[in-house]
């Protein structure tokens, strides 16, 4: 232990660590620069949320308006509808969409025939690589009341236009697209489980369900918790592309989420400051939720991020 530490310390007669390991630092630089330029510098742009931003005047020349944009945001009815929808849709997606890949990964893990397993894996991962524009077109065709599959069964109303079914459609189409892809990380975690555990349990007479319940699941619990915390941070982002492609006047009141609201009334109208204020609000809530979830995870499970 002592030796390991000294080797990293600059001792007389030796070069300082940064010079000795300069090539590691060099390798680190592009990544650091990336985060600095693309993730940290833009944070400064948040200042426009507190200004009446005009192109002519630039960021610094624009007038300070305090919390005007936030007041306008909280005063508009559309915002609260969008916030309510965002939370509801996100919670649905969390409740149904989050366990789906875990279940799928457990099932895939039990498949012994590797050819069959790989085929299935490819099939379930595939939708992830299609954009919502394409998937939206497929859904539209499938669910059209005049030409779709539903019409074969005599169902006249499409879930795309029914406010009662639309959110379920969002959740299920979300699972359709992402569940397969999200299994990858769980399958990787399962691959790391020590096979001795399974062998020992089998000798003790454990069946398949026992193995999955008492060995596989506890072994990937850490991964599940980390992903869950990350997911909580995105609670106010219910999926812009998906909703934007699928929503329509018949379901606006149950489907308009913060992202689509901000796009419509902020960005597409050139109201940069307003859009930034809304984005800032989303980020703040997301960060608060993330910290909260992490604290809970640490208190009860001793497994957090930091």
């Amino acid at each position: 232990m002592e030796r390991a530490v000294t080797s990293f310390r600059a001792t007389p007669g030796r070069r300082p660590a940064i010079l000795k390991y300069w090539h590691y630092y060099l390798l680190l630089t592009p990544g650091m620069l990336f985060f600095l330029v693309f993730k940290y510098l833009p944070i400064a742009g948040l200042v426009v949320a507190f200004k009446d931003y005009k192109f002519v005047n630039g960021i610094w020349g624009s007038e300070w308006v305090g919390l005007m944009w936030f007041e306008q945001l909280f005063a508009s009815e559309g915002f609260w509808i969008a916030l309510r929808n965002t939370v509801i849709i996100s919670l649905y997606k969390l409740a149904f969409g989050f366990p789906a890949p875990i279940l799928l990964a457990l099932l895939l893990n039990e498949v012994r025939n590797s050819v069959f397993k790989r085929t299935i894996q490819s099939i379930v991962i595939f939708p992830h690589f299609m954009s919502w524009v394409v998937l939206g077109g497929i859904l539209f065709t499938l669910l059209s009341p005049s030409t779709g599959i539903l019409s074969w069964f005599g169902i006249a109303s499409s879930p795309l236009t029914d406010p009662k079914q639309f959110r379920s459609l969002l959740v299920f189409s979300g699972i359709w697209r992402e569940a397969g892809w999200n299994t990858v990380i769980y399958l990787a975690a399962m691959a790391g489980i020590n096979p001795d555990l399974y062998e020992a349990a089998k000798i003790d007479g454990a069946g398949r369900f026992r193995l999955a319940w008492n060995i596989t699941l506890p072994s990937i619990a850490g991964t599940i918790i980390i992903l869950f915390i990350l997911r909580i941070g995105y609670l106010l982002q219910a999926g812009f592309d998906q909703v934007f492609i699928l929503y329509n006047p018949l379901v606006y009141n149950v489907s308009d989420i913060l992202d689509t609201y901000v796009y419509r009334v902020g960005l597409s109208m050139g109201r940069i400051s307003f859009a930034t204020a809304a984005g800032f609000f989303q980020s703040l809530v997301g960060m608060a939720l993330l910290i909260g979830a992490n604290a809970l995870a640490r208190r009860y499970g001793d497994r957090g991020f930091w």
Binding site: F38, K39, L41, P42, I43, A44, G45, L46, V48, Y53, G58, I59, F240, V262, G266, L267, I272, S273, A275, T276, A278, G279, F280, Q282, S283
Partner: peptide, 12 residues
């Protein structure tokens, strides 16, 4: 970061 913020910042 919210997408809106980064777009705004770039434009600025």
């Amino acid at each position: 970061m919210a997408r809106a913020v980064s777009i705004a910042a770039l434009a600025c």
